[in-house]
Design a protein around this nucleic acid. Structure first.
Length: 974
RNA sequence: GGGCGGUUAGCUCAGUUGGUUAGAGCGUCUGCCUUACAAGCAGAAGGUCACCCGUUCGAGCCGGGUACCGCCCACCA
């Protein structure tokens, strides 16, 4: 949409081109992010602004982006994560640190393979009505087509998918304003990255930390691959506990076992009891007959069996249950695999061979029933493991896989977190991490998939030799067979987290000792969601320590989950997903970012809604219009003045925030002294101007300090609220309103006033504080302010963010006194329905210093409160005047003739009086308490006393007012 | 089975070491198109801080317990 308005990049800004009066283009009243944001997004990327500087000069701050999966486009969770990171990156960058934010993407082995399959399925079956059923059908069909087309063609499709989605993700990130260094972007299947992955595998293997073996793994029959423990979700489902009789060999008696999975009995190779269980001790060593198959199996004693559960005897199926596998190992039992990788019964299942696991269960139960071997059936809630990816029930199966030995790797990773070399925030995530690490199990790292890093294991065609190496060996060390061709590589690929676990150091060039690795490793920070704490954070810490002897990052901040307005997790199936691009296009990136940041309290999930974004769009508009006001009043300044202003406004890195005029004694503009002061019309206006300028810079210093503290603790919401409140309710509502006459009345004069310069500088400081949250609008407005020299970006302009000394207590106090008076006057006007009128007012107090403050700022008071005149009296005002008491010890009254609405006034008083009374009673009780007086700190006690005095005063006045109302003859109203 | 978090205004949520009168946004009500902004300005109403007990001069905050909600972990069939 064209607005007839084109604000410039620095190169094209009109400020330096114009020779005489600068003519501002018309700036639209309503902020249109779509006219601004894409332009700056492009500029930041094209100019490569976010490459860190060369050399080791300044402090550095580094972070590697958690690489988004190339499975699809970015969702709100990413946007939150990227917003939080970007805020911190921009914040650190403005402090002059050398910031590296390294972006990249993850090949996401299993997830990508699944989406690509589904895509193939969709192509084959284009007419299905989209939905859960169609997804399943597409998946099935896609899988079939994958097998049909073979690895080579399928992987081609995967790369094509990567290309397309990688581009989409990158565009999204650019549009969100992520200040990453694209020149360092990495992908987990880049050639160099893949080489590093293989090297890690080979090294771990030769150190004995990776091994291959036949163990029980979680098998997803639908995905057709093993998955790790972490990829299995548990779901409670109603089920049954069947008690089955196993007859003792020799004809007399039986042992009953309880099971939730009767179909696995076909693979039973023993019955186990606890050796300390008196009921069964004599049975150990005897034999039972496995029903249905009539196999003779032993009774063994094993501590694992819980005598209190079920019958105290348990069937042992080593090939289909991890616990039973353990028992089988301990007792040297055979393993009989009765279910294959498709979850169908094998030949070993005898008559049940070929049935699905569900059919087999039915058949087994039916046959047991017929043989009268079912003793009883109980209802039982059981936990079934389901595949994280496809929700199919996983099958524990015996299978030959590759594993990583975790204990030796975990130990240093535990210590690193315990002693704080990596600090985990919030603290409860630290505990969760440690608990998991203490109980860590070996990690199944092989996957029966095609998309991913092929396992570098080579099997000799001539014998059973296995060699683990980056490439096929020249000759077989065992059978002596020569040549690289006589080997076939392991078909499997690595779990995707194996490669992401190396992210922080491989992205910087490891195993080469690159400059980047030296400069930016360890990373200063890592930010991620809680859901991948084990998957990713834990593995990065373990592998980082293993291969670099350093923690991969010094801090780990765990961010919240983005939920919908009803606090429900966003999910495609629920249909409550908010698309970041859509909402960004609707309200602007800045507004969405601010909405996210303002809700991002550590440890709490975010309820995200359109409403919130809308209110921050309003905020962006507010900022825009404040800028508009400031720039409009610059419009008439001649070029010379603009030049000089440019010099004056250029931030000076060494001095930074100190250069703001709050503390400078001359209180003028450097290079323009003398002129500015002359322009102040009267002593009075000058005093007023002085106070408000001092006040705003004092507030800026305080706000900066607060934001520093908040961001250092990842309290994004606090920092966002602080700047929001400051900008809107202090800078706009008070500062701009206060200086307005000085600014607008002077705009026709040939020189900029000190007032304008200070305003512009305060505004610029506010833009700096806002910039990390709202990078686009701040960049735009900053460029429109006059700067000299090569001002490339607000984000690269150093802003010294710490200066606690800049606080000006006296000015803040004076300002508060004035503000209270103005608000009280407005209040009376509103309550009395005098908003269109300009009544006169009187203020009275014993404190002459306060009267003097009022007197010397009366222009501002009259204008901002909407009063005609203000006069001053010494002492207190009589009750008949219905004075309003102020905390500065003054009484304020307004003169007006409008008849008072007696009923409304009485209602108000009757509501106020009990409240005041209650408060008064409470504070009197407190002050009457001797131990309060003796034990509480002095300032708390005096504070309470002062408060009591106020309350007494207020209470009396209220009562008097009510009494007067009652006494007065009730005159007919209107 | 173990662990963690939540319960504060009509709604969504802040409230970092205990201390004067518990805050914000949205929504509601009143009055205003005041030359930066109606996506705005000025003002107002609205809370037994889930419940019980304790520690303390003093508790939304600390300790113990109860209720409801949510999340994570878990190889007892």
């Amino acid at each position: 949409m064209s607005l007839g308005y084109k604000a410039g990049r620095p190169q094209t800004s009109g400020w330096k081109d114009s020779t005489r009066k600068h003519v501002r283009p018309e700036i639209p009243k309503v902020y249109s992010p779509e006219a601004i944001e894409p332009r700056w997004a492009r500029y930041w990327v094209d100019e490569k602004l976010y490459r860190p500087a060369e050399g080791n000069g300044s402090a550095r701050f580094s972070l590697s982006l958690p690489p988004p999966n190339i499975t699809g486009s970015l969702h709100m969770g990413h946007m939150l994560e990227h917003t939080e990171i970007d805020i911190l990156m921009r914040w650190h960058r403005m402090r002059g640190e050398n910031v590296l934010w390294l972006p990249g993407m993850d090949h996401a082995s299993i997830s990508t393979q699944m989406v690509v399959e589904r895509e193939l399925g969709r192509e084959a079956l284009p007419d299905l009505e989209p939905g859960a059923a169609a997804r399943r059908a597409w998946q099935r069909e896609g899988q079939r087509r994958r097998l049909e087309m073979g690895p080579e063609k399928f992987l081609e499709r995967c790369w094509q998918w990567k290309q397309e989605n990688g581009d989409t993700i990158r565009r999204q990130m650019e549009r969100m304003g992520a200040s990453v260094d694209w020149t360092r972007a990495r992908f987990t299947m880049d050639p160099a990255y893949s080489r590093a992955v293989i090297e890690v595998f080979v090294r771990l293997y030769h150190e004995g930390l990776i091994y291959r073996g036949q163990y029980i793994v979680n098998w997803c029959p639908r995905c057709g691959t093993a998955v790790s423990d972490l990829e299995v979700a548990h779901e409670e489902r109603p089920g049954q506990l069947w008690y089955i009789r196993y007859p003792l060999e020799g004809g007399t008696g039986s042992i009953s076992v309880a099971t939730t999975r009767p179909e696995t009995m076909l693979g039973d190779t023993a019955i186990a009891v606890n050796p300390s269980d008196n009921r069964y001790r004599s049975m150990i060593g005897r034999k039972v007959i496995l029903p249905l198959l009539d196999r003779v199996i032993p009774v063994v004693g094993d501590e694992f069996v819980d005598p209190a559960f079920g019958t105290g005897a348990v069937k042992v199926t080593p090939a289909h249950d991890p616990n039973d596998f353990g028992i089988g190992m301990r007792h040297n039992l055979p393993s009989i695999t009765v279910m294959d990788f498709d979850a169908r019964m094998t030949a070993a299942a005898g008559p049940y061979s070929g049935l699905s696991r569900e059919q087999a269960r039915e058949a087994v139960l039916r046959d047991l029933q017929a043989a009268n071997l079912i003793e009883k059936i109980e209802g039982y809630k059981l936990n079934v493991g389901i595949c994280d990816r496809c929700k199919t029930i996983v099958e524990p199966l015996l299978s030959k896989q590759w594993f990583m030995r975790m204990r030796p790797l975990a130990e240093p990773a535990i210590r690193a977190v315990e002693d704080g070399r990596t600090r985990v925030v919030p603290d409860n995530s630290r505990k969760v991490y440690l608990d998991w690490m203490y109980r860590i199990h070996d990690w199944c790292i092989s996957r029966q998939l095609w998309w991913g890093h092929r396992i570098p294991a080579w099997y000799c065609d001539g014998c059973d030799e296995v060699v683990v190496a980056a490439s096929a060996p020249d000759a077989c060390p065992k059978c002596g067979k020569a040549g690289k061709s006589g080997w076939h590589q392991d078909e499997d690929v690595l779990d995707t987290w194996f490669s992401s676990g190396l992210w922080p150091f491989v992205t910087l060039g490891w195993p080469e000792q690159t400059e980047d690795l030296k400069r930016f490793y360890p990373n200063d920070l890592m930010i991620m969601g809680f859901d991948i704490l084990f998957f990713w954070a834990a593995r990065m810490i373990m592998l980082g320590l293993k291969f670099t002897n350093e923690v991969p990052f010094r801090e780990l901040y765990i961010h919240a989950l983005v939920c919908d307005a009803e606090r429900q997790k966003m999910s495609k199936t629920k249909g409550n997903v908010i698309d970041p691009i859509e909402i960004t296009e609707k309200y602007g990136t800045d507004a969405v970012r601010f909405a996210l940041a303002s809700s991002a309290a550590p440890g709490t999930d975010i309820a995200f809604s359109d409403d919130k974004v809308q209110s921050y769009r309003a905020f962006a508009n507010k900022i825009w219009n404040a800028g508009r006001f400031i720039l409009m009043n610059l419009g008439n300044l001649p070029e010379l003045a603009v030049r000089q202003l440019g010099v004056a406004l250029e931030p000076i890195p060494e001095v930074g925030f100190d250069a703001l005029p709050v503390r400078s004694s001359e209180f003028g503009v450097r290079g323009l002294e003398g002129h500015g002061n002359e322009q102040l019309r009267t002593e009075q206006l000058r005093t007023e101007q002085l106070l408000i300028d001092r006040w705003i810079f004092s507030r800026l210093a305080a706000v900066t300090h607060e934001m520093n503290e908040a961001l250092a603790g990842y309290r994004f919401h606090e920092a966002a609220h602080t700047i929001y409140h400051f900008f809107w309710h202090e800078f706009c509502d008070w500062y701009l309103e206060w200086v307005k006459p000085e600014i607008t009345e002077r705009s026709d004069e040939p020189r900029p006033t000190a007032a304008w310069v200070n305003m512009a500088r305060a505004f610029e400081a506010a833009l700096h504080l806002l910039h990390p949250f709202m990078p686009f609008i701040t960049e735009e407005l900053w460029h429109q302010l006059p700067h000299s020299g090569n001002a490339r970006s607000i984000s690269l302009t150093r802003f010294e963010l710490v200066n606690p000394q800049a606080g000006d207590v006296v000015s803040e106090k004076q300002f508060e006194t004035l503000r209270e008076l103005i608000v009280a006057a407005r209040n009376v006007k509103a309550e009395m329905g005098l908003q269109k009128e300009k009544p006169s007012a009187q203020v009275a107090t014993e404190d002459l210093r306060i009267l003097e403050i009022f007197r010397s700022h009366q222009h501002a008071i009259l204008r901002l409160a909407g009063l005609e005149a203000l006069n001053f009296a010494r002492g207190r005002l009589p009750a008949e005047a219905s004075p309003v008491p102020l905390s500065s010890g003054c009484d304020l009254r307004l003169f007006y003739e409008r008849p008072v609405d007696v009923v409304a006034e009485r209602t108000r008083l009757e509501r106020e009086i009990p409240k005041a009374k209650q408060q008064l009673e409470r504070i009197e009780r407190q002050l009457a308490n001797e131990s309060f007086r003796s034990r509480a700190p002095q300032d708390v006690v005096t504070g309470a006393e002062r408060r009591r005095a106020e309350l007494v005063d207020q209470f009396q006045r209220l009562e008097q007012s009510l009494a007067r109302l009652g006494a007065a003859p009730s005159s007919p109203q209107n």
